[in-house]
Design a binder for these strands. Structure first.
Lengths: 221, 221
DNA sequence: ATCGATTTTTAGGTGGGCCTAATTTTTTTA
DNA sequence: TAAAAAAATTAGGCCCACCTAAAAATCGAT
């Protein structure tokens, strides 16, 4: 069975919307994420259901089947591997790769994906710190601890970003905050939840919004 | 202006069909090359004409405009660069890359193409010996001398193949005939035009059909 | 429980790219 | 040069992915 570009994009969207809730995903949420109309979603959800990728009953939202999950994960895998390629090999910046990877992820060839993975040295995370599933669809474990949930005294490494928009990524770039950057949480201001961190011998103040979008791993020194 | 996958494929087909004749390209020829129906071609040719890629008058065939030529060459450039990537970096065999490159050639990003070219070291020829246009659309010169047109005594290098079908490429592989392989033409049998060549210290007999599909460069020792 | 708001689906339409069948134009050949 | 053959176009329809507008189902508040 083969899947169109649109089908793959819908399955990916539904996969992400399903994370952290065992409920079916609503038509509206899918429409909002895909930037289409609810009626278009109904059409596609029905079609994907016919193809065995979704469980769907009218007015009850969509749930991925095992098959749908596989297709979604395969697509995510390709997307993230291509992002690594674009950054590591072609020296794109991490805020420039999303749109191109969005196209590359639909190239059909399992052999290509696996060879690309090998060529890249079996990376576990993409340039934004998101985990890359292996060819069996298993994700490496990764931190989902947000900087905003840390406490003064914590020593942490930046391991990923929740918001991967070019705007946020470029801002991080200008602040010299990268994956792997280590810092110590000094203080959290109660009135706006902004976070003061020490990096090397200088301090930086990060807004709550920024802190909520940085994934970190605590290191026990 | 953006071009769909189909539009790019039509322009590529018309480009190749235009080579070596300044006539317009017939609907039938395009249909045959694209494996579609003549009526579909009429539709698309009209559309591409509206877009300024073709000059087309009813019943008179299609001629590429400068714009159409640019789009075609850009697509060919991408195709051939990706083929180099697949063979050189991912170690695909030369008979395996066509279908994948056929998909990759439609990825939209001039920046990607140029960075890929640089990453690959500005290759001049693809794995089948076909010339890769540079970013200005200029093709490097290459040999179009067929082995079948050589004469006994000629020393030649294989520089390309005319037929790039997997069948032919695999056959060459099994015969240990590669790009860059050098040989001396020993004899051409008049009754079937088959060619005897010496490679190292052994002789091989190549059928006329094979010889007509091998491009060579004569070397003056 | 019912009314109103919200969500979801249905109905019907659009453009892209393709098809078959019928028709028209051009070319070939007798 | 007229008839036959070939090539090209038109007419009309299909499937995909999308849309708007209208209808139906569900949810929430009183």
């Amino acid at each position: 069975m083969s899947y169109s570009l649109s089908e793959e994009n819908y399955l990916k969207a539904i996969f992400f919307l399903s994370l952290g809730s065992s409920q079916g995903v609503s038509t509206t949420d899918i429409a909002s994420r895909m930037e289409t109309k609810a009626s278009s979603v109904t059409d596609m959800v029905r079609k994907l259901s016919d193809k065995g990728c979704l469980n769907y009953k009218k007015y009850q939202g969509a749930r991925l089947t095992e098959l749908g999950r596989e297709v979604a994960i395969r697509t995510i895998r390709k997307h993230r591997l291509w992002e690594v390629f674009l950054v590591e090999k072609l020296h794109f910046k991490w805020d420039e790769v999303h749109d191109i990877a969005e196209q590359l992820e639909h190239i059909k060839s399992g052999e290509l994906t696996d060879r690309l993975e090998s060529f890249l040295g079996f990376p576990k995370f993409d340039p934004h710190g998101d985990p890359i599933p292996n060819k069996h669809g298993q994700f490496p474990s990764h931190s989902t601890q947000e900087l905003s949930d840390c406490e003064p005294g914590d020593q942490v490494l930046i391991t990923g970003v929740k918001d991967t928009s070019p705007e946020f990524l470029q801002w991080l770039e200008r602040q010299e905050l990268h994956l792997g950057t280590g810092m110590i949480v000094r203080e959290i201001f109660p009135f706006d939840q902004s976070v003061v961190v020490a990096i090397g011998d200088s301090n930086k103040t990060l807004s709550q919004l920024v802190a909520q979008n940085l994934f970190v791993k605590k290191i026990t020194p």
